[in-house]
Design a protein around this nucleic acid. Sequence first.
DNA 1: AGATTGTATCGACAGCCATCGATACGTTGA
DNA 2: TCAACGTATCGATGGCTGTCGATACAATCT
Lengths: 114, 114
Amino acid sequence: MTPKNLKAKAVSKVCCGTARDIPLSERDADELASVFTALSDPVRLRLLSIISSAPEGEVCACDLVAPIGKSQPTVSHHLKILFEAGLVDREKRGVWVWYWALPERMSAVASRLR
Amino acid sequence: MTPKNLKAKAVSKVCCGTARDIPLSERDADELASVFTALSDPVRLRLLSIISSAPEGEVCACDLVAPIGKSQPTVSHHLKILFEAGLVDREKRGVWVWYWALPERMSAVASRLR
DNA sequence: AGATTGTATCGACAGCCATCGATACGTTGA
DNA sequence: TCAACGTATCGATGGCTGTCGATACAATCT
């Protein structure tokens, strides 16, 4: 059992109760953590902000390299991670690849934070 | 300027417009990314789920080691990261340290995902 | 076909991070 | 004062990750 609430002053002799089961399963924790990992890089967050706020709803990858200020392989790497996390989708049109955000995915993750 | 929407079929000759400014500043991106980094580990997410769902609103650190299944130093390390990210607060009472969640912080982060 | 251009992949390297044993610190109780 | 206990810190280690140059791939244009 978890010890009583002793916030004020007293200190119980009894502590460290028996283990309860964890609300978040190991599998769910792994999945959630993988999404947060995709969001844990400032370059990816800025890419996401550009893509999400695009007036046309989508952005050509060629328009993402210059403002980010990183090399083209690096930007491509980050876009791949965002894509695999389900945060953006993409489509190849001719030589170019267009990216757009998946807001329902982001709000789904957000709701998991209560 | 960003090229026209050519989703259907045609492919424009013109692409790769001039750089717009990024909605998310570099400073804000760093700050946000640091919080997501704190959330990017399954052990920390499970710790947070235990702490957040505690009936008394708080949990003794001594009750966190066993269910997580990691060593005491490892759990202490993760709790420190959650604390420094502003996701939990803590108070020492006697020998024990009690942790509780800061839901307003989590919802603040969640709202940043739209 | 060959040249050009946008994108993704590869290989390498440096820095960060999760993990644990050992240990130090602080508090309690005898 | 000393022993016991909960927690935090330290040091080491293995694995992961962001970065870039070089290169491969695919589509377009001449």
